[in-house]
């Protein structure tokens, strides 16, 4: 089985921002979720793996391929759905997908056509294959993105913030697509939407300020903080008074009132009740630095 080995990757941007700081991860086949807030370094990491950027130090291997020195080898087995991408507005979906397949190395026309057709069917774009891409809605464009990422059955598929901007139905469809991709393929899903990870991923890591704060599988991560999350419903105006003494990890509005989750080994006060933690709590607690990696 191939695995992606990220070792001590660091990257500093010219302005001074340390985007990645000694990031080490090993990712095997299956769905891997990379969680983190905006600016955490997720996209930098994704682009580095996708050969679009160079890291300053560290190494990156996919099986035997040393990604840094064997970019083309990597690109042959890679599928990448960027966070933000554009398409040629006047070109049809079929034409561009076919062209990208050519660029991926599929020179034989008959085989390629069959493959392109299949991809379009898989992503439910078959009946709009002759429409110009400029007329596609956001969801359709995302599906096109995943279609081109899946050309040639890649060994590693990277999807960067794929469901941001999709409506609930599209999101579900997209999840199904990802789930179908297969057991032998490494899929890295980079997102700040916690439920995407909890729904789909068997392994995960949390990235914050360029560092890996947590890695492992979601279930264990949740288990680790069982019994340490406490909840209370309060008034909005009282929020400030609660912030001071307690490590609040999240606040949520529900029917006009504010529900806070607090992290701690012991119940803060009787007005709080224990709650079964979920991945959101893990995420917020980790990001606030309350949980060690």
């Amino acid at each position: 089985m191939t695995e992606l080995r990220i070792s001590h990757l660091s990257k500093r941007y010219p302005g001074g921002t340390q985007a990645l700081s000694d990031v080490s991860l090993t990712v095997g086949p299956g769905m891997f979720g990379l969680l983190g807030p905006n600016g955490a370094g997720k996209s930098t990491l994704m682009r580095t793996i996708a050969t679009l950027q160079e890291a300053d130090t560290g190494s990156l291997h996919l099986g035997d391929i040393d990604v840094r020195t064997q970019k083309d080898a990597m690109r042959r087995v890679l599928g990448y759905l960027p966070q933000e991408f554009g398409v040629y507005p006047k070109v049809t979906a079929w034409d561009l997908l076919d062209h990208l397949a050519v660029l991926k190395g599929f020179m034989h026309r008959t085989e390629r056509r069959a493959m392109v057709r299949a991809l379009l069917q898989k992503t439910n774009l078959d009946d709009v294959r002759d429409r110009p891409l400029g007329s596609f809605s956001g969801g359709m464009k995302q599906r096109f993105g995943i279609a081109q990422a899946l050309i040639g059955n890649p060994q590693l598929v990277i999807v960067d913030e794929p469901t941001a901007g999709l409506d609930p139905e599209e999101r579900v469809r997209f999840h199904n697509l990802l789930a179908e991709i297969g057991e032998n393929v490494i899929v890295i899903l980079s997102t700040h939407i916690v439920s995407d990870v909890s729904d789909l991923c068997s392994a995960m890591a949390i990235l914050h300020q360029g560092r890996v704060r947590l890695s492992g599988d979601p279930a264990s991560a949740v288990e680790r903080i069982r019994g340490r999350v406490w909840a209370k419903t309060i008034d909005k105006g009282d929020l400030a008074s609660y912030a001071e003494p307690h490590p609040i990890i999240s606040t949520r509005l529900f029917a006009g009132r504010t529900n806070i989750h607090v992290f701690g080994d012991a119940r803060p006060d009787p007005s709080f009740h224990e709650v079964a933690p979920d991945l959101d709590d893990v995420y917020f607690a980790t990001v606030r630095g309350l949980v060690a990696a």
Binding site: A50, L52, L100, G105, Q148
Partner: peptide, 8 residues
């Protein structure tokens, strides 16, 4: 990104 990540 669509082009530069292809093996060309």
């Amino acid at each position: 990104a669509l082009f530069f990540t292809k093996p060309i």
